[in-house]
């Protein structure tokens, strides 16, 4: 295995190619490599690149992809501009992991499906295209209930993406082809497994995630809730946003984590909120639509209840949040 300590972004991009992987904090990639789940031939260390700043610009917060989660959580600007982000970051993994893990690495974390992460399991279409899915075939309780396909039901892992989805953040990507830069709404970064579960993000070959941009809004309220039985394995989470005008919901976002193959917008739930006066009754009407489009299996009958619980809790937090963010 070849180790490249890139000194510039251009040098990092120049080393991209088949078998090459970018290294942010490297914690997850080292674990997956050790287990034989990932087999990188070339590691491109991004530690020295100038992607570690957090800047408050006009109307937005820009976060470099190599910012450590601990630094993100402790940054006063984040607390002022996007307290939701701080709340979510403070619950990701463990404090020691957050000292090393990066924003970019967390966003591109591979799924925690136990049978994907077990290289001795021969039936995982995510690792071995066309090999089936041992979770489905052996009726394990693991797996997502939204956005699944016959090939794969692995739940996406990023919690940061759930929060950033509610915050309407954008990601900036840089391609090795002519150093072309593009921006995407964060939720468009993720793709459903379909028949190609080996692909989890809409990244082109060698494309590098360089930063995340969070717009600032004084009119929006946010809420977050999660259920976890271990710090490394949140079962379900929800981040919500409600934009209110005279107590009317003019815009809403409800993002589910842990239960879907990608950070999941509960669109029917959002639709139920829009145009109505905010109230406890409205929260219940919206919660009743959380499971629209869900595909629970007999082996995961406990998961729909988790989805409604986290959305209800997150919406209540948003309703009760009186101290809205001001510029």
């Amino acid at each position: 295995m070849e180790w490249i300590a890139a000194k510039t972004v251009a040098e990092a991009l120049a080393h991209a190619g088949p078998g090459a992987r970018y290294v942010g904090g490297g914690l997850s990639l080292s674990l997956l490599s050790e287990r034989g789940v990932e087999r990188p031939q070339r590691l491109i260390d991004l530690s020295a690149l100038p992607l570690r700043s957090i800047e408050g610009r006009q109307g937005e917060l820009r976060i470099g992809a190599m910012v450590r989660l601990a630094a993100l959580g402790q940054e006063p600007l984040v607390q002022t501009i996007a307290p939701l982000l701080r709340q979510v970051v403070a619950q990701i993994a463990t404090p020691a992991i957050r000292n090393q893990a990066t924003v970019g690495g967390e966003l591109l974390e591979r799924p925690r499906c136990p049978l994907f992460r077990d290289a001795t399991n021969p039936r995982c279409a995510k690792r071995l295209p066309g090999s089936g899915c041992a979770v489905l075939e052996e009726a394990h309780a693991a797996g997502a209930i939204f956005g699944t396909s016959a090939a794969c039901i692995a739940a996406s892992a990023s919690e940061l993406a759930v929060a950033l989805g509610a915050l309407s953040a954008q990601v900036t990507l840089l391609s090795p082809e002519g150093l072309a830069e593009r921006s995407l709404p964060i939720l468009d970064l993720y793709v459903e497994p379909g028949q190609t579960p080996e692909r989890e993000q809409a990244l082109t070959p060698g494309e590098l995630l360089t930063s995340v941009t969070v717009p600032v809004s004084s009119q929006r309220r946010f809420g977050y809730a999660r259920i976890a039985d271990s710090p490394l394995l949140p079962l379900a989470s929800a981040a919500v946003m409600m934009e209110l005008r005279d107590q009317q919901v003019v815009e809403a976002r409800v993002i589910l984590g842990g239960l879907a193959t990608r950070p999941w917008r509960a669109r029917a739930c959002e639709q139920a909120l829009r145009g109505h006066r905010v109230s406890d009754a409205l929260v219940e009407l919206a919660v009743a639509r959380v499971l629209d489009g869900a595909k629970p299996r007999p082996d995961s009958r406990h998961l729909p209840a988790l989805a409604t619980q986290v959305v209800r809790a997150a919406l209540r937090h948003a309703v009760e949040e009186h101290a809205t963010v001001r510029r």
Partner: peptide
Amino acid sequence: KRIPSCLLW
């Protein structure tokens, strides 16, 4: 800074 050395290359 504390870091789990088992996962750190």
